[in-house]
Nucleic acid binder design. Structure first.
Lengths: 131, 131
DNA sequence: CAGCATCCATTACGATACTG
DNA sequence: CAGTATCGTAATGGATGCTG
């Protein structure tokens, strides 16, 4: 089996354990491009190049790779129409929506705290930079 | 100024924009070691080597680097006692607690979905691997 | 104990070119 | 349009040795 918690813990999967597969999934979700991709898809389904424009700075290669990982983990569904030119839509699965929701809450919390973060950085740098 | 949203949006900071400083902070928070460090500290203050043991697999260098970044962003407070041997405690700031809370919700959501994720992987791999 | 400095291997990433 | 393949570089991260 793939669970990985200590004896009597209540959770079967524990990201704090090095070998737990949940750590890998967490990295797909929170990784630089994974987080932004899930965030973008939370507003609705998007095509490949729409996603590329939405997630500013992502390369074709990384977006493709990210989408594969998220699809494999069952967070994103890929809907391909066999037309010409091809049209492929990506959307969140129910599981993906749940996780993207939590992620969005985190992202918004970070965005909403940036003034405070930047102020803290200023203080930190002044205390160190002056050395 | 450091804001970076489009004209009439309501948020001043937007992670989807390449140059926005919020993207950097999000990466500190969600990075491989940042996420686990904040998660560990959410339960209470810890010393350097306690953290190292808690966050299974982190190296001294990465933990040190991670703590600096989080301290600089104002999410973690470093409390050093000038004793011998030295004792240093790390704990979350109020801002850090807010963000770590959201992060923990995400982590628990991922951990709780692992059975589903693993099942999805099985299906995906079978459909592809059989090629 | 709590770290910093250095070196080195691995990996991630981006640019480019090409395919169906 | 929606990707895959290849390549060179930049960043990451681990191991080791040293300091206060």
């Amino acid at each position: 089996m793939t669970a990985c918690s200590e004896e009597h813990e209540e959770l079967a999967y524990n990201v704090f354990a090095k070998a737990c597969p949940s750590r890998g999934t967490l990295e797909h979700v929170t990784g630089r491009w994974g987080a932004l991709t899930l965030g973008a898809l939370h507003e609705g389904s998007l095509r490949f190049n729409e996603l590329r424009r939405r997630v500013d700075g992502v390369s074709e290669k990384m977006l493709s790779q990210t989408l594969h990982a998220l699809e494999r983990d069952g967070l994103v569904h890929r809907e391909a129409q066999p037309t010409n030119p091809p049209r492929v839509d990506y959307e969140l699965t129910p599981l993906g929506r749940e996780i993207a929701g939590r992620l969005l809450a985190l992202i918004e919390s970070v965005e909403g705290s940036m003034d405070e973060v930047l102020a803290a950085r200023g203080r930190y740098d002044e205390a160190r930079g002056a050395r």
